[in-house]
Computed example of a mutant assay.
Amino acid sequence: MALSRTAYVNLLRAQAGYHEGRDPSGNWNNQQKFSPAVPGLEWSQGQAWCHVFVSWGADELDARDVIPITASCATGVSWWKKRGRWTDYPVLGAPFYMGSAGQDHVGVVYKYDADSIWTIEGNTNNNGSYQGDGVYHRVRPRRGAGSPYGYGVPDFTEETVSADPNLGGTKAATVPTATPGDEVNSTPPTQEKPMTPAEIQAVADAVWNYQLPNLRTDGTQDGTKKSAYWWLIWQDVFQAQLLAAINEAALTPDDVRQALADGTLKVQLTVKAA
């Protein structure tokens, strides 16, 4: 069955903020809604579920032949390679695989540029753990430490968009956000304008006194708080990404611009961080 890149990515992104269950002691337990919903993967309930999430999206859209239906990242990598649909370069809308052989973790790319990939991932957390607690938007480096092992190349209904020179060599691209009534197959990938220094300063001014929970390295709160401005100046490379990470708000630069223009940035952060 045919699979639209835009439909697939936006279905997965719509799950951001979903969390797995907890055991009687309050610990995350890998019990989630995706395993029981995918025929053949019901057995994976209670196990690591990052690839189940990726497979669930394809199954929901009746495209089990376009994305590997498996709970195993290693099996997923093998599936792509056997079909000759594998690359070392980002592919828009495609699964990316982490680990020395791609065995550790998987998510889906919804945006990339020369340095980074923007992703939607299951079984991760704000710190990018391979054993997390829910569905999150993340930003990961394209190269070096913490970068993917490689990428599958799905046969979407839209033309393949990839940084791979053999697949068009598109330097940067974004999957558009679908709205009700849109023909999701018809909108081409768009590129997002970076934030200007003045806009970055406006964000800092808007959230100067907004207090956010301080997180330990394992993602748990340590009981203290720091202002959002402290977070902004601590990591000033991807300002909108940082806001997304600390608030689970997934705000893009365009979202921030609109919120600043509307005067609603504080309100958005307060609601989404609550």
Rank of each mutant, 00 (worst) to 15 (best):
L242W: 03
V237K: 15
L243R: 10
A261L: 11
F238N: 07
Q258Y: 02
A249S: 11
Q258A: 03
A250G: 07
V256K: 13
T252C: 02
A245N: 13
A240H: 10
F238L: 09
L260R: 08
W230F: 11
A261R: 14
R257A: 07
L232F: 09
L232D: 06
T252H: 01
L232N: 10
W230N: 09
D262L: 05
I246L: 09
T252L: 08
D254C: 00
L243I: 10
I233F: 07
W230C: 00
V256E: 08
D236T: 10
A244L: 02
D255L: 04
A249Q: 08
A244R: 01
V237A: 05
N247D: 13
L242P: 01
D254R: 03
L243A: 14
A250D: 13
A240L: 03
A240T: 09
F238Y: 12
W231S: 06
A250Y: 11
L260V: 01
D255S: 07
L265Y: 00
V237T: 11
I246W: 03
Y229H: 09
A249F: 09
I246T: 05
L243V: 07
A245F: 10
P253M: 06
A249L: 02
N247P: 02
L242H: 07
A259P: 00
T252P: 05
Q239V: 03
I246E: 00
W231Q: 04
V237Y: 14
V237I: 14
Q241R: 14
W234T: 15
G263I: 06
A261I: 04
Q241A: 15
T252Q: 05
I246K: 04
A249W: 03
L243D: 03
Q235I: 09
D262F: 01
L260E: 09
A244K: 01
L251I: 07
D254H: 13
L232P: 11
E248C: 06
L251N: 04
V256S: 01
A250H: 12
Q235Y: 15
V237R: 15
A261D: 10
A261Y: 05
I233P: 01
L260P: 01
L260Q: 04
A245D: 11
A240V: 01
W231A: 08
D262H: 11
E248S: 10
A259I: 10
V256L: 15
W230G: 08
V256I: 15
G263A: 00
L260T: 03
W231V: 06
L251C: 04
